[in-house]
Write a protein that binds this DNA or RNA. Structure first.
Lengths: 127, 127
DNA sequence: CTCGTATATACACGTGGGGGTATATACCTG
DNA sequence: CAGGTATATACCCCCACGTGTATATACGAG
């Protein structure tokens, strides 16, 4: 997940990924369209490949790079954990729990001695 | 979008975001749980705030930081562009178009003269 | 084999950004 | 007001990483 974010956090890599949305492309074409030096393209593709975001299809001396769905699906799954923030379909129970936690935080008397509360129940989500 | 990825590409920031999933937290608590120096937490929260991923609720001297849904929803929308990579519900037409583009790339005769553009075929130095 | 093409890798360079420390600012209490 | 708390900011250090250049590797044609 972190690796996915790291890979996509670079402007040119993000552009490459979005370019590959139109289909597999050889390195040279990517460089032309994005106005990048060839070594840059190769190195960025290496990072994307290590992150699993693309894979290679050798074609003579060319290398066709194509998007891989797995990391994007993982990203989609990761987002699932946060959908309760905006998704109305979520149960009222979940929303209630979030509200409770916010209230609990605010209930702290502002200058509380930061009690370690050794036996306080945690709310770790199973899974 | 890039800003969102950049914000989430840092390990501690990602941890903060995932921690805030359990509800709003003051800076001190975040630092305790993640074992970070307080200035680090403040600076990371600043980045997350600039990216719109969190907002602040002052509470006396404390600052309660809470997740904001907007960037995550944007991320979800951005992923929508790539769902055709794995989502079977997509029309066969879209899949067909992708296949066509792949075929088009591969149709190039491997040692093609690389001259599809008569105007400009040599890229200039960027910047 | 040689030659041209397509891509990957090695290397030096410069900068951005995170870590760590000290200090500033804001707030509450007494 | 003073003093303590909670957080933000300034500053410096350092290293990872992106850029740009040169070179290596792989492949097909002849």
């Amino acid at each position: 997940m972190l690796q996915t974010f790291t890979a996509l956090a670079e402007p040119n890599r993000l552009r490459i990924v979005e370019l590959l949305r139109a289909g597999p492309q050889p390195v040279g074409t990517i460089g032309e369209r994005l106005r990048l030096y060839q070594p840059q393209v190769s190195k960025h593709l290496r990072v994307l490949r290590d992150a699993g975001l693309v894979d290679v299809h050798p074609r003579a001396q060319q290398r066709l790079y194509a998007l891989r769905s797995e990391p994007l699906r993982d990203l989609d799954a990761w987002l699932e954990h946060f959908r309760s923030l905006w998704d109305e379909r979520l149960s009222n129970l979940e929303r209630y729990l979030v509200e409770m936690q916010l209230a609990e935080s605010e209930r702290q008397p502002a200058i509380a001695p930061m009690t370690p509360r050794p036996t306080k129940r945690r709310r770790e989500k199973p899974g």
